[in-house]
Amino acid sequence: MFDQFPEPARSQLRAAFDEGRTRPEWCFTQGQARLAYWAPFPGSEPEIVWQFDPGSDPVAAAGLLRGSLEAMGLTKVIHDISLQPGLDPVVDRAVEHEALIEAGFTMEVERLLLEWVAVSDVPENPGRLTFHPARRMDPAEVIDILIRVSEGSLDHDTQVEVATSGAEKEARWMYDDLMSRKAKPDWFSIAYLGDSPVGLVAPDDHSIAYIGVVPEHRGHGYVDDLLAWGTRTLAEAGLQRVVAATDVANVPTADAFLRAGYSEVGRLYRYYWRAS
């Protein structure tokens, strides 16, 4: 089935298969339209329409989407369209947008795509916090911190998952996701002020995958400490480019990235489908 996709999608799908994140039976084609589903981490259910080439006919592509959703038996799916600043998916990816809407998806979130490059200064770590690798901690303790970080979160996906599935289930899913990332074992870390956990930061092999502060420590600029530590960790590992994303509505986090020397390089439009 992977051979029906053109390069570079074919090679990406084969690599994802080797990682346990997609399967041939998660791939569908109809005419010129092709799509493949993706699991966020090995062992999890597929929930991302990762490779989607709608061809030239949005109605046919929507039919392929609907048929694949029925065949997969899924209850929720997301699909992202990434664009350069100033572009609009309604205009600049019209066939893909129309296919998604026709298949019952809704565009709910606009996200900033951010980038730090090595020509920028590495943000200074203020030294207020100490960092402990999450992998060396009791999983229950890390999950508890993830639950606390989700309280009052401005992140849309976190808000939806906490409201529909509960904070503990969302935190356990996030723990499994972060532990599966391609990162050195000590990169995903919990930050402490003395004996009090302040928050967490999870760099992976190319990005800041997750960052958050617990409610009782918000308002003191600790997100800058977390981001400085995460960015410096990746810079010292030799990365020339670090990427990140945050909801446009999450102004405090977006501002923290800009203070740390990140710049906006695009927008991501996230579409959702949920079983009725």
Score class of each variant (00 low, 15 high):
residue 141 E to G: 06
residue 87 L to H: 09
residue 70 E to S: 13
residue 118 A to Y: 05
residue 77 V to T: 14
residue 77 V to R: 08
residue 84 Q to A: 15
residue 17 F to L: 08
residue 120 S to W: 03
residue 274 R to T: 15
residue 182 K to I: 02
residue 130 T to G: 14
residue 60 A to K: 14
residue 196 S to L: 05
residue 14 R to C: 00
residue 158 T to F: 03
residue 97 H to R: 13
residue 88 D to N: 15
residue 247 D to M: 01
residue 64 L to P: 02
residue 45 E to C: 10
residue 99 A to T: 12
residue 136 R to T: 13
residue 98 E to Y: 06
residue 199 G to T: 00
residue 118 A to C: 11
residue 179 M to F: 10
residue 254 A to W: 02
residue 209 A to H: 03
residue 28 F to M: 01
residue 39 A to Q: 01
residue 161 E to H: 15
residue 247 D to I: 03
residue 47 E to H: 10
residue 99 A to R: 14
residue 15 A to E: 13
residue 265 V to G: 07
residue 271 Y to N: 02
residue 189 S to F: 03
residue 217 H to K: 11
residue 23 R to P: 00
residue 258 L to D: 03
residue 181 R to T: 05
residue 7 E to C: 11
residue 112 L to M: 11
residue 255 D to H: 14
residue 65 L to Q: 07
residue 96 E to F: 04
residue 53 D to G: 03
residue 201 V to A: 05
residue 230 G to F: 12
residue 104 G to P: 12
residue 57 D to S: 14
residue 34 R to Q: 07
residue 61 A to M: 12
residue 146 L to V: 13
residue 268 L to G: 09
residue 213 V to F: 09
residue 189 S to M: 01
residue 144 D to I: 01
residue 25 E to P: 06
residue 255 D to E: 08
residue 91 V to E: 09
residue 33 A to L: 11
residue 275 A to T: 10
residue 50 W to C: 04
residue 197 P to W: 03
residue 258 L to T: 01
residue 258 L to R: 15
residue 12 Q to M: 13
residue 175 Y to T: 02
residue 255 D to M: 07
residue 161 E to Q: 15
residue 192 Y to W: 13
residue 256 A to Y: 09
residue 32 Q to I: 00
residue 244 A to T: 11
residue 55 G to I: 04
residue 206 H to Q: 09
residue 100 L to D: 12
residue 48 I to N: 08
residue 234 L to R: 13
residue 259 R to E: 00
residue 276 S to Q: 15
residue 271 Y to I: 03
residue 209 A to V: 00
residue 127 G to V: 12
residue 183 A to E: 00
residue 75 T to Q: 08
residue 184 K to I: 04
residue 97 H to N: 13
residue 138 D to G: 07
residue 66 R to A: 15
residue 203 P to Q: 07
residue 95 V to P: 06
residue 44 S to I: 08
residue 231 T to A: 04
residue 71 A to I: 02
residue 98 E to P: 03
residue 103 A to M: 14
residue 153 S to F: 05
residue 209 A to L: 03
residue 212 G to L: 07
residue 204 D to E: 04
residue 52 F to L: 11
residue 10 R to P: 00
residue 180 S to M: 02
residue 114 L to N: 11
residue 253 T to W: 02
residue 271 Y to G: 08
residue 136 R to C: 03
residue 230 G to R: 08
residue 11 S to C: 06
residue 41 F to T: 06
residue 268 L to E: 13
residue 189 S to G: 02
residue 26 W to H: 08
residue 240 Q to I: 06
residue 67 G to M: 06
residue 201 V to Y: 04
residue 121 D to P: 07
residue 106 T to P: 00
residue 194 G to M: 05
residue 192 Y to D: 05
residue 121 D to K: 09
residue 171 A to V: 05
residue 176 D to Y: 01
residue 189 S to W: 00
residue 190 I to W: 02
residue 35 L to M: 14
residue 92 D to G: 09
residue 62 A to V: 10
residue 165 S to N: 11
residue 43 G to M: 05
residue 264 E to T: 15
residue 3 D to K: 04
residue 179 M to C: 14
residue 72 M to P: 00
residue 250 N to P: 00
residue 127 G to N: 10
residue 21 R to G: 02
residue 224 D to V: 01
residue 158 T to M: 06
residue 118 A to H: 15
residue 218 R to A: 01
residue 156 H to N: 06
residue 57 D to P: 10
residue 189 S to C: 08
